[in-house]
Design a protein around this nucleic acid. Structure first.
Length: 348
DNA sequence: TCTGGGGTCCTAGGACCC
DNA sequence: TCTGGGGTCCTAGGACCC
């Protein structure tokens, strides 16, 4: 009996939820994202497997998706529906004798001791399907990193085990962007250093990596490439570090007052959200994205932590005024950074 | 690829202090 | 006045993830 980590990842989760309540869509290319208008600004949240065959994936601009598959069904995001479905899945997982960490709407880690992790994985998949009609894939690993990568290799509806034993065989020849924490940018920078594969990164020089990626990130990249990860699976609720809202305008706006009003509105919403969660803001960060796509941020530290809407709005508008340039604006956002709860002294 | 909205963490550089 | 070194805090931006 050994300890294993399971990573449970729901298959095409958002699209699957939509198809469940619209059975006539089964088997069709379904694309969920934005307001559902594929001619408007927005990106794909999830595409069904049928739509993925057309080269549509998460993050694809909706307009691109429309061009690639004009016959796809385009649907608006419906967060409450996904939250409800996710909650039911997590309740199923909570029934297993394991430490459970919810890692997102459609994924979770389980840590448990067992002699047969594949049997547990089958049982997890069966329970989820029986209770929610949703399909899932399960990765098994010695740690969270391995389990997470294994679930991707298990898709769809499969089970895959990635361990220290087969890590090199399975991962060594893949490009570095196969790793968790290595995206396009880091992958390219690594390639520029002559590091193309996971095996090459695993054998890279720590000081070279530290020089290129910083004292923490550099050496960490190499541990990831070796399949090492000691972060614990924990069911403890994570304390939020920040709460924010942002809005991309359907068309770039050129009126300063319009952008400013939107900042005020977003700040009010964020303030209400913070108050509802019984948190308090220590700093307000305003973001402005100018056309075509250059982003600026400005932070204002609050004199004391607060939940006061007027104070948060005032800080946001002050940051906006300090930041604003007379150029077409694509997006504005407001984010409140939160103080640790035990340190908070709220002004009422 | 004309690029959402919700987040987290890390880095580099400047201010400030002794 | 041509000017060290170290620590800490803050800010803006970058990269990544779902």
């Amino acid at each position: 009996v050994s300890r294993f980590i399971l990573h449970v990842d729901l298959d095409e989760f958002i699209a699957a939820v939509e198809v469940l309540r619209r059975p006539e869509l089964r088997g069709r290319p379904v694309v969920v994202g934005g307001t559902g208008d594929p001619t408007a600004r927005g990106v794909v949240a999830t595409a069904s497997y049928e739509a993925r065959r057309f080269g549509i994936g998460s993050g694809t601009p909706l307009r691109t998706a429309l061009r690639k598959c004009p016959d796809a069904v385009f649907l608006a995001l419906d967060r409450p529906a996904y939250e409800a479905a996710s909650k039911r899945v997590m309740e199923v997982l909570a029934g297993f004798a394991a430490e459970l960490e919810v890692a997102g709407w459609d994924e979770a880690f389980l840590a448990l001791r067992t002699a047969d992790p594949e049997a547990v994985a089958r049982s997890v998949q069966h329970s989820i399907r029986a209770h929610t009609s949703l399909g899932s894939s399960v990765g098994i690993g010695d740690n969270k990193l391995q389990a997470k990568l294994a679930s991707a290799l298990a898709k769809p509806a499969g089970i895959f085990r990635l361990s220290h034993t087969n890590w090199s065989d399975v991962m060594g020849k893949r490009t570095t962007d196969a790793l968790w924490g290595v995206g396009r940018k880091r992958s390219r920078r690594l390639a520029a250093l002559g590091i193309e594969t996971v095996a090459e990164l695993a054998a890279a020089d720590d000081s070279l990596l530290a020089h290129a990626f910083g004292p923490s990130t550099g050496p960490w990249l190499r541990t990831v490439a070796r399949g090492e990860d000691d972060t614990p699976v924990t069911s403890a609720a994570r304390r939020p570090r920040s709460v924010g809202k942002e809005k991309t305008f359907p068309e770039d706006i050129t009126q300063r007052a319009t952008a400013r009003d939107e900042v005020r509105r977003l700040a009010g919403e964020v303030a209400a959200e913070i108050a509802e969660q019984r948190l308090a803001s220590a700093r307000v960060v305003v973001k402005v994205r100018y056309a075509p796509f250059s982003t600026r941020t400005r932070a204002v530290a609050l004199r004391r932590c607060t939940v006061e809407q007027l104070e948060i709005e005032g800080a946001a508008l002050g940051a906006f005024d300090a930041l604003y340039e007379d150029r077409p604006v694509r997006l504005v956002g407001v984010r409140c950074e939160l103080k640790r709860l035990e340190d908070v002294s709220v002004i009422h």
